[in-house]
Simulated assay, not measured.
Amino acid sequence: MTALGFLYPGHSAEDDYPRIEQLLGSDIRLDVVHTDIGTDAHRVDALLEMGSAERLAAAGVEELRMSGAESVVWACTSGSFVHGWEGAQEQVRTLAVTAGMPASSTSFAFVHAAKEIGAGRVAVAATYPDDVAGLFADFLRAGGIEVLQVRGAGIITAAEVGTWGEEEVLALARQADSPDAGAVLLPDTALHTATHIPALEKELGKPVLTANQVTVWEALRLTDRRVNAPSLGALFTREPIVQV
């Protein structure tokens, strides 16, 4: 049994994790600990505080250690990339020391996952306001990923994002897609996507990377595990995406 730990801010789309655990269909356990979200707002000041070292240190890493977790991922994209590349690196270094295990964040997961599938050029479909979506694009560029197009939905709170269903997710992905993009990225962990990935990839005819999907993949990567799970999209299978 491989146990993976996640620090998830608040309560929006955390039910993606037991669903992903089921879809993995393997000897893998996903342990989710909720952090205090503070102010629920996709604003730079609120996001900086949400991902502060003090807040994460008090978030329950001891609980994850006791559960036998072998890695931990800060399951918040905006609460990591808002610190910039260097700041996000320091964030996960501090988390690794505090937790006593390999650590990462969803922002780095996107960079690693895009490279894993060979998507050097991407489009971003973000639920965030435009300024925050732009910071995510800057983070990707710092990681060596070319961003061709960014579409922000302008949603302020994670609570609202958590109410979106497949129709809204598909619409945002279609609006953001670029013909030259090797993948479309949906960066919000408050967005339910675990059950929508096959439909997204079929609709767009290319790999789609979503926040909770890449977060789990990153935790597996930190433990040197690779799992074939086609229902979780191209990232979890070597089978090519059929262009339609």
Rank of each mutant, 00 (worst) to 15 (best):
A113E: 12
E168W: 00
P179Q: 12
V184H: 01
K202F: 03
V184I: 07
G154P: 13
T127I: 02
G182F: 01
L204Q: 11
D138R: 06
G162T: 05
A159E: 05
L170C: 03
T195C: 02
A103I: 04
G154T: 12
T98K: 14
A99Q: 01
Q175V: 07
L186R: 00
E218V: 07
A113V: 07
N228A: 15
R226N: 14
L200H: 09
A171M: 08
L172W: 07
L172Q: 07
A119Y: 02
I197G: 10
P129S: 09
A219L: 03
V161N: 04
L135W: 14
L209R: 00
R121I: 10
S105M: 08
R221H: 06
V169H: 04
D131N: 05
V150T: 06
N228L: 14
H196R: 06
W164E: 07
N212Q: 05
A113C: 10
T195E: 14
D177I: 01
P198T: 15
R221E: 10
E166N: 04
I156G: 03
E146N: 10
E167S: 03
K202R: 10
F136T: 02
T210A: 00
I117G: 12
T193H: 05
T157Q: 15
R141F: 13
D188G: 01
R225T: 15
I156E: 14
L185W: 04
R221L: 11
T195V: 13
E167T: 08
G154V: 12
I197M: 01
Q213N: 09
R151H: 13
E167W: 09
L95C: 14
G120L: 15
L148W: 01
I156C: 12
A171W: 09
A229D: 14
F136I: 04
A183E: 03
T94Y: 12
E167G: 11
H192D: 07
R121F: 06
L200V: 10
A211V: 00
A119S: 02
F136Y: 00
V132C: 05
H192E: 05
G165N: 02
V216A: 06
D188Q: 04
P179F: 11
E201N: 14
R174V: 11
W217G: 13
P179L: 11
A158Y: 11
A99V: 13
A125F: 06
M101W: 10
G134T: 03
G118A: 13
A96N: 10
N228F: 13
E168P: 01
L220R: 06
A153V: 09
A171C: 09
V132D: 08
M101C: 02
G205S: 12
A153T: 13
W217F: 14
L170A: 11
V216S: 02
V208W: 01
R174L: 12
W217K: 13
V161H: 04
A176H: 04
E203T: 14
G182K: 02
E166V: 12
L220G: 06
A119D: 06
A190Y: 04
H196E: 12
T98P: 11
A173L: 03
V208N: 00
Q213E: 08
A194L: 00
G120S: 15
